[in-house]
Amino acid sequence: MRDDLVLSVRDLSVTVHSDDGPAKILDHVNLELRRGEIMGVAGESGCGKSTLIRSILGILPHGAHSVTGEIQFCGENLLSMPQRRLEREIRGAAIGFIPQDPYLALNPVFTVGDQLLEILRWHGMPGESSDRRYTRSVRARHRERIIELLDAVQVPDARNALDRYPHEFSGGQRQRLLIAGAIACQPQIILADEPTTALDVTTQLQILKLLKELAARFDVSMLLVTHDFGVIGQLSDRVTIMYAGQTAEYGPTGEIINDPRHPYTQMLIRCHPDRSDELIGIPGQVPVPVSPPSGCRFHPRCPAALDICSAARPPLLYGEADRQAVACVLYSEIVS
């Protein structure tokens, strides 16, 4: 693993054994997250974006599933790490998580302070071991830290906010509280699953600005899953586009948005209202993972499909210095 990488996902495959047979939700996904960068993961729903996040956190849905490949994080493979360590040191500590729906993610019967303190109590403050006794002074120190965090995420009146219940906060404020929880243990990475979809536009803008600011201030990398290219355009440095459990394309945000190569990316971007006043969609649907199409999984919906597209899966073709890659037969010439 190169020095500047904090997270490197290699050949990750997740197969869920459903009643209709095995469903390959992720199929040899590769992804690299550099220190301090924000990486967007885009694609329609059903493309495996959330499963990717869940695999990294080690919280795949219950039921029979098998995972192959590796997820390298700070020199260790998360997939072979014991549950106990994952719970103590990784999930919610070294890797923070911002969920999609701030209305569901907080327990309504506990105060905000209780829920945030719980995080520090479980993982320990950064720099202190987690299994020391939870004394009054430790708790007081944790409280101070939480108040700092709430200030950092711009929750007004942080000191009193601790004793209030989630329903007393608006959706945007709740999302701020969750962000505070995600950064509480000074994570290396934050995973955000559609962090603004449930919010209003003006609130969304506030949260996006906050995320960008926090990423820079705390030097944390971020993996941002969203179906909205507008959000990606504003927040992320690089983008990975997923389709039906596979990587379709990745590259720097600006280049992807202004010069997308994969037909799927092109169509996704064309759907954005900024690109056209016409109502353009993508015909067809994301295939179900139980029975994906042969060859390139996008070929049944692709306007540029050739005969060979249904024959074999196109490999990821890397551009100059691995800055960009695309899995499409149309681009065999960019192989270096």
């Binding site: 608006s170 536009v201 003006t202 803008l205 506030q206």
Partner: peptide, 25 residues
């Protein structure tokens, strides 16, 4: 004006320039 401003645009790296409304409704 604020609503129009807040809609996510397909223009990378503009986030800092956009003024967000303060507070919640």
């Amino acid at each position: 004006q604020a609503l129009l401003n807040a809609a996510p645009r397909l223009r990378p790296g503009q986030l800092e320039e956009i003024e967000a409304l303060a507070g919640d409704p």
